[in-house]
């Protein structure tokens, strides 16, 4: 899966997105039905932007669309839990340009949206100044996070 993209998978499948930087990876999981979904969103809000046709590009519309897709695949909305990763700041500058702290804004927007939808965040690995590759396993909902120089972990 690439940037501004989303997908779902049933057990025993795995969803992978490589090289997550300032974008945010939002993993949703229905434990009972063993259905997993992942969205790789680039920007916090579709409402600030005119050109918003690709819904997976934004945190708010990306999450909504992913839930719809998961429900169509047989997931139950009330079963969903979330894990979030990414949102790092790859380059640092003294100027506090909006674009450069976009990672942090993506994470904030994700938490806000999930709270609105009453989806519990069970773990997160966000921030920092490094990229992440993630693998979401539909068998148990585990999320493997790989980095260069910052270790590997399962959250």
């Amino acid at each position: 899966m690439g940037m501004a993209d989303l997908n779902t998978v049933k057990a025993p499948g795995i969803l992978t997105t490589l090289g997550l930087g300032s974008c945010v990876g939002i993993a949703l999981y229905d434990k009972t039905n063993k259905i997993a979904g992942l969205v790789h969103a680039m920007l916090p809000s579709s409402k600030e932007i005119r050109n918003n046709e690709n819904k997976a590009k934004f945190v708010d519309t990306g999450i909504e669309l992913l839930i719809e897709k998961m429900v169509r695949e047989g997931a139950k909305k009330s079963n969903l839990t979330a894990k979030i990763t990414g949102g790092s700041q790859m380059f640092s500058f003294n100027s506090s340009s909006n674009i450069l702290n976009i990672g942090e804004r993506n994470v904030i927007a994700t938490k806000k949206k999930l709270q609105e939808l009453k989806i519990r965040i069970i773990s997160e690995d966000t921030g920092g100044n490094y990229g992440r590759t993630i693998e979401l396993n539909a068998e148990d909902g585990s999320l493997l996070v790989k980095t260069i120089g910052h270790g590997i972990k399962i959250i």
Binding site: M3, L18, G19, G21, S22, M42, I99, G131, I148
Partner: peptide
């Protein structure tokens, strides 16, 4: 110094 995807995400965003 990092993964190409993570670095290119900055201008893409």
């Amino acid at each position: 110094v990092d993964m190409a995807g993570a670095i290119l995400s900055v201008p893409a965003i």
